[in-house]
């Protein structure tokens, strides 16, 4: 069974553009799948449709065989979402409560939640912040917390929406290491990113998305071979275009000074 099967997914916002124009996509069980595209390409919209945060205009989404609309409770149970925006944490809760309530919403019994909270706080080096309000956390700690929260109920599929946007190099490498480990343990991962390096390092398969359409899909090696390019960056330039690349790099430089480090184009 596929972890995720999306068929002809369209999304038109009430007062906005058509963000998704008939997306077809399959993510296999246990796969580390990268969704790569510039800002505004439709990555977050696609993820919002999968997780139920957005209502698709048309099309079908199946999560481990469960329809995301008709069987939404079962479909959502299988997914853990780490949103792009770390400010979306509940500011009235502390770190421990953030994880505990999340586990409760997914039906975890109290004792199981307590054990899982302890495990995650340790894994994400947040033990000494257990009782700290989320308001008091640094940006990096909030990023760790949203990823820990997504893993709280041990989802079959982890969706990471730009998990390393705005984080320093050290934390980025730490998160990469953690994501690889979680994937090795059997969790399917769907990662959206606009860092080419990130997709190249982590994903076993990559889909390139632009203007609400999947423009190409395959393993990094397949894409390089198909487009006769040496690097994924060159493939991206050929498929998505230099203008989009420059636009994304400019947006990054304005919002995320650390993003230009490393091999990525940001």
């Amino acid at each position: 069974m596929d972890a995720l099967r999306i068929t002809d997914l369209k999304k038109k916002y009430r007062k906005g553009p058509e963000a998704l124009k008939g997306v077809d996509l399959t993510v296999k069980k246990g796969e580390f799948f990268g969704l790569l595209g510039p800002n505004g390409a439709g990555k977050s919209t696609l993820i919002h449709c999968v997780t139920g945060l957005a209502v698709p205009t048309s099309g079908e989404i199946k999560v481990f065989g469960k329809d995301s609309q008709k069987e939404y409770q079962a479909a959502r149970q299988a997914v853990g979402l780490s949103p792009q925006e770390v400010m979306s944490l509940d500011w009235f809760l502390n770190v421990e409560e953030t994880l505990d309530y999340h586990g409760g919403y997914y039906g975890m019994p109290r004792k199981q939640r307590q054990r899982r909270v302890d495990e995650l706080l340790k894994s994400f080096s947040l033990e000494d912040k257990r009782k700290a309000s989320v308001r008091a956390l640094s940006g990096g700690m909030r990023r760790r917390l949203v990823i820990a929260r997504a893993l709280m109920h041990k989802p079959k599929m982890l969706i990471l929406d730009e998990p390393t946007a705005g984080v320093d190099v050290e934390l980025r490498l730490e998160l990469w290491h953690y994501m690889k480990r979680v994937n090795k343990q059997g969790t399917t991962i769907l990662l959206t990113t606009h860092y080419i390096e990130e997709a190249e390092q982590l994903a076993s398969r990559v889909a390139l998305i632009n203007h609400g359409e999947i423009v190409d899909i395959g393993t990094v090696a397949e894409l390089k071979k198909k487009h006769k390019k040496k690097t994924l960056e060159d493939v991206y330039l050929a498929v998505v275009g230099r203008e989009e690349l420059a636009r994304t790099a400019k947006a990054d430089a304005e919002t995320d000074p650390g993003a230009g480090e490393g091999k990525g184009f940001g």
Binding site: R76, M87, Y105
Partner: peptide
């Protein structure tokens, strides 16, 4: 407030009926 901060997303993406 939950909508404004998008903190409600954690509940909306959960299996809560």
């Amino acid at each position: 407030q939950q909508r404004f901060m998008r903190a409600i997303d954690d509940q909306l993406a959960s299996p809560l009926h």
